[in-house]
Design a protein around this nucleic acid. Structure first.
Length: 376
DNA sequence: AAGAATCCCTAGCAAGCTGG
DNA sequence: CCAGCTTGCTAGGGATTCTT
């Protein structure tokens, strides 16, 4: 969103410096490429996009060349850093039966739809975008098969005049010399994705793509769509909504252990929702679970959360980590910690991320570069 | 630098056990 | 007794480490 763009604009000025840094980074992409990229991603979302694009193009491609070719500019226009995924509440997106990677791609493309759009556009997704946001493609030559598989997955929407069966995309064009896909939504999806003024559920792409279990995003959206933030639902109904296979309907333990529990844990850990209470209610005189009551709260703003975290864990470990990451600032004592509370957000209990705003606002242009240097 | 081997995780299935 | 639970297995895929 905003932060990313600001950063990029600031970075455009000292172009030479970026080039040096990125070239340096590229040289190190030998073994734990992924780690480095991920790390970079945490701090420089935008640059990360561009870098993975370059890696894709060929490891030897220099950053200078990329700059000349205006890859930076082109990328921004195409996928952008839009982060909101919206569905009409009537849309049965749970039924899709997509695997993780496919789901993420769909979310990524949906996020590109703008409020004011009256019609779908063709969305150009670079393979690097897919790799970054949806997970690695095993083999670039398999892209065609990936497209075929995705387009072959159908689902059914019950509409007024009947059941409509369709798939997400009406076509996927694999561009010849670009390592990119041009995807086109099925027009029948328009009422569910375009011009949404009311009765919609929205979620952040950045959260959705972090989920690692297949059913998590569905359950997350389900929880989000309940205004009361409390879900009281029959197990059977839930199984229907999520469209789980038969074995999960026969065996609640499986359903719970492999689907619900992991999903709720993930949601609690990663998303903006907090699961505060789960009740399993049995049928009378039986061992069978009839329904579930799940209570959800919206998490407090990050700042609060960080504060709580730091107060709860007066860890030297945390201080040490922060000090190591940001040498110029002392983290000792109340003031130091407060400074961090403002600038750092907690991803989970163990991971700390320096925000873009921190680096751009607090430090001048030179500083983020130092930061990068430390990482490598 | 590429390919092979290994480990780990998720999703799904089913035979056998057990509490009501 | 039997519905529901436990346990264990498998396929498949990803990530990481080892080999060549």
């Amino acid at each position: 969103m905003g932060a990313g763009k600001v950063l990029l604009r600031q970075f455009v000025t000292p172009k030479r410096q970026i080039v040096t840094i990125l070239n340096k980074a590229l040289r190190q992409f030998v073994t734990p490429k992924r780690q480095i990229v991920k790390h970079l991603c945490l701090i420089y979302n935008d640059i990360y996009n561009k870098m993975s694009y370059m890696i894709m193009e060929g490891k030897k491609m220099s950053v200078e060349y990329a700059t000349q070719k205006q890859i930076f500019e082109a990328e921004i226009v195409e996928i952008g850093d839009r982060d909101v995924v919206k569905f009409h509440n009537k849309f049965p997106f749970f039924k899709h039966n997509l695997d993780l990677q496919e789901q993420r791609l769909v979310f990524l493309v949906i996020a590109q739809i703008k409020m004011e759009d009256e019609d779908f556009k063709d969305y150009k997704v670079h393979l690097a975008d897919i790799e970054e946001k949806a997970g690695a493609l095993q083999n670039r030559r398999e892209v065609k098969r990936f497209a075929q598989k995705l387009i072959s997955k159908t689902f059914t929407i019950e509409e007024e005049n009947g059941d409509r069966t369709l798939s997400w995309f009406s076509s996927i064009l694999r561009l010849k010399n670009e390592s990119a896909l041009l995807v086109r939504f099925d027009p029948a999806l328009k009422p569910y994705l375009l011009q949404l003024q009311q009765n919609f559920t929205k979620a952040l792409l950045s959260i959705l793509i972090k989920f690692r279990h297949k059913y998590t995003s569905q359950i997350y959206m389900l929880l989000k769509s309940r205004i009361s933030k409390k879900l009281d639902i029959k197990v059977e109904e839930l199984a229907n909504i999520l469209n789980v296979p038969k074995s999960y309907r026969k065996n609640f333990t499986d359903f719970w252990k492999r689907v619900l529990e992991p999903a709720l844990k993930e949601i609690d850990k990663i998303s903006d929702l907090k699961i505060t209470k789960i009740e399993k209610i049995k049928y009378p005189y039986s061992r069978k679970i009839e329904r579930l009551k799940i209570k959800v709260e919206v998490k407090q703003p990050k700042e609060q959360e960080t504060k709580q975290y730091i107060e709860h864990n007066k860890h030297e470990e945390l201080e040490a980590r922060l000090n190591a990451q940001y040498k110029n600032k002392s983290v000792k004592g109340e003031d130091g910690l407060n400074w961090y509370v403002k600038h750092i957000k907690v991803i989970n209990a163990k991971e700390v991320e320096i925000t873009l705003t921190d680096l751009t606002k607090e430090a001048q242009i030179i500083k983020p570069i130092d930061e990068l240097d430390k990482i490598f």
